[in-house]
Design a protein around this nucleic acid. Structure first.
Lengths: 249, 249
DNA sequence: CAAATATATGCAAAAAACTGCAAATCATGC
DNA sequence: GCATGATTTGCAGTTTTTTGCATATATTTG
């Protein structure tokens, strides 16, 4: 096996899952972890991915990981995604925004579930396309390289023409008083449009992001119907959100 | 065995598999690894492949087909794609339909080329997103599972709002009298809309499809400005297309 | 803080690349 | 037909790269 092939494989994995574990790769390719470590080191130097403790993450998605150090939060994201699955009923029409938590959700959708899914996220569309019982409708528009979702007037226009049962709104920052915030203006516009197109807004959010704020405001907390975190319902970090007419899962 | 033959063989292998091992080639051709090494060195100098430790990889190797479908007659398609590259000028606005030949084209777009690309194809969008100098605009709509392009009214609507310099129209069947045909009605509608949105229509088409017809008609041959095949210009298979006011590449 | 896990470093074996050289092959001119 | 020179090919020795392992250090997590 050529070094190039290995590195390509790693990049592919990162491209698909947005994260890889050193040990996973070493296992799949039957090479030592040292070798994979060295490969990732090179790819990192070549700025093709980001090396982190335990593995690597995709460059485009460090938006969702401002610290860039917690790739193990995947477990948390899976937990959140699993809870989110419980909100979906067969035959519904849903809207999935970008972000790694939502990508996990898309991955975990059971094959037998019949759905119509709207999404502006390229990786999520790829994921959903693999599921035979899901009708995928892609929100067109200009693709943002960082977030890998479509943005801009055309996308917002298309969103304005739909009304879905549930929207899973990837959440960068949520604060009990300040509401949902983002640092990218274009994504703010997209998320506003998504909220407007949905009867029910679900906000999957890992606990690190609870209480944080960013530059631009999307909406107040009252616009969110359901907040999903990986925490147990009685966790103190959730106290601030408990009297805001939000369902907490 | 002539040096020329060997090098052709190597290029062919690289074209098909995207990578070759030095030892494999030496073994298959019954020559020493040194000879193969020298060949690869020359081909590398001629920029026909990339020499790496242990073998060689194709030039567009650092790319990935996320949907994982196998592409047949890749070598021919690469040749077509390479010819198609010659039609694109820096700064243009282009529209790329679906199909594996066009995916090859997307793969081979040089990183330094500045372009605005519209596409309804998911794999092509993924491919283009990796190129920093290309602005990608995705034609939204319902994603068709088998063709992996968006179809339907919404997509056609979005197409109706644009006008691009060149459209690379993946071609299933082309016949000198019957024109371009397709077997999927929805794709026919998409292609019609694409032609309508383009100042120049380029039809990349491998020779097997020349002269064949399908169920539904997209347009007459006169709508196509350029026909690209892998054949040499004087090939008899092209004779039937020579008096139709089409540029043949 | 301590256990578990991940990283960095030095090292040695294996694989591959480079170098120089000689034999074989081929084209060319006489 | 044959000598000449250029090119090609394979071989042996040396150098470089890659890879896995062992050990020491650093980081994460409960």
């Amino acid at each position: 096996m050529l070094k190039e092939e290995r590195q390509q494989f790693i990049l592919n994995e990162v491209g698909i899952h947005n994260r890889v574990l050193l040990t996973d790769i070493a296992d799949q390719l039957n090479v030592s972890v040292d070798t994979v470590r060295r490969d990732i080191k090179e790819l990192h130097a070549a700025k093709l991915l980001k090396k982190v403790h335990g593995g690597a993450v995709s460059l485009g998605f460090n938006n969702y990981n401002p610290t860039g150090k917690k790739i193990y939060s995947l477990d948390k994201k899976s937990q959140i995604a699993e809870k989110a699955l419980g909100l979906i009923k067969d035959g519904q029409v849903i809207l999935i925004s970008g972000g790694t938590t939502n990508l996990e959700l898309a991955r975990m959708l059971p094959p037998k579930l019949k759905l119509t899914c709207f999404t502006p996220s390229l990786p999520i569309a790829v994921q959903l396309l693999g599921k035979n019982n899901i009708e995928v409708i892609f929100i067109g528009g200009r693709l943002s390289k960082d977030s890998q979702i479509t943005v801009g007037g055309s996308a917002i226009n298309m969103l304005s023409e739909i009304k879905v049962d549930i929207c899973f709104l990837g959440t960068n920052s949520i604060h009990p008083m300040e509401g949902l915030t983002e640092f990218d203006w274009e994504i703010v516009q997209m998320k506003k449009a998504m909220i407007h197109s949905s009867r029910k807004v679900v906000s999957p959010c890992i606990s690190e992001k609870l209480g944080s704020t960013q530059r631009y405001k999307i909406c107040g907390v009252e616009e969110v119907d359901v907040l999903i975190t990986e925490l147990e319902p009685w966790d103190v970090k959730l106290d601030a959100f408990k009297n805001l007419n939000i369902q907490i899962v």
